[in-house]
């Protein structure tokens, strides 16, 4: 309905092309960009950035989450720092990162890594602390300790809340990607949007927005699939 009104508005000149392209034009542009390879190539660059940032965030957040979750000492050292970091909006770090890392790939990946670390850390920390101590005790009585206790009991127990953090982090990574790619991008979705803005190609801009939306949906679907496989043991409140 909305789409039809939008199309009609564009056809009869109520919505000028330079304000918003018609849905049919957007679809055509989408097809053309895909066939030419321009969209897939730029999308791949953006995905690689997000993946690199997330990989760093995962490594850091899991290490810190376990450190803070498993020891009082770790909590005292790590948690206040993470809470301070939480109060600073990650995007506000952009100017500083440009000064530090220039305008190449590094500040983009660093921004994504910094922004996605916190949700993973916080949820993993809560998951580790929320473990049923009776289960830990039972496992200890059967001779588990140290790393085997972490691997067999604590990590699997913290997994449900870890996934909540991961899903949130994936959403944040798309958000930060949009901003990070405004920094002198030579390739990527942001680069595509910036170019389109310069030529007032609203059709390309809308295509890129759609792709961002699809990325968010895709990320969510990915985590849901992972969850279904990893958390098959969990009785579900709602039947699948």
């Amino acid at each position: 309905m909305l789409l039809a009104l939008w199309e009609l508005g564009s056809r009869f000149g109520l919505i000028p092309e330079r304000v918003l392209a018609a849905p049919s034009t957007v679809a055509e542009t989408f097809w053309a960009l895909t066939v030419s390879g321009e969209l897939p190539a730029n999308l791949l660059v953006s995905l690689a950035r997000a993946a690199a940032g997330l990989a760093i965030a995962l490594a850091v957040a899991v290490s810190l989450g376990l450190l803070a979750g498993l020891s009082r000492w770790g909590e005292t050292v790590v948690d206040p720092l993470m809470q301070i970091k939480r109060t600073i909006p990650s995007l506000a770090l952009t100017p500083l990162f440009i000064v530090w890392f220039g305008i190449g790939e590094t500040p983009k990946i660093a921004l994504i890594a910094v922004a996605t670390t916190f949700p993973i850390y916080l949820n993993l920390f809560a998951g580790v602390r929320g473990i049923d101590v009776r289960l830990v005790e039972a496992a200890r009585s059967f001779g588990l300790s140290g790393w085997s206790l972490v691997r067999e009991v604590i990590l699997p127990g913290a997994l449900p809340s870890f996934f909540v953090g991961l899903r949130y982090a994936l959403g944040v990574s798309v958000l930060v990607l949009v901003v990070a790619e405004q920094i002198n991008a030579q390739a990527g979705l942001g680069h595509l949007i910036n170019n389109a803005r310069d030529f007032m190609r609203t059709d390309i801009i809308v295509v890129c927005l759609l792709v961002y939306a699809l990325l968010g949906l895709g990320a969510d679907a990915l985590v849901r699939t992972l969850e279904r496989r990893a958390l098959a043991w969990r009785p579900s409140l709602v039947e699948q």
């Binding site: 496992a139 588990l144 127990g157």
Partner: peptide, 16 residues
Amino acid sequence: ARLLPWKKVWRNVALG
């Protein structure tokens, strides 16, 4: 019983 819910029954028995 304190079985680990993420391990199948036989893996719970084989724990450790």
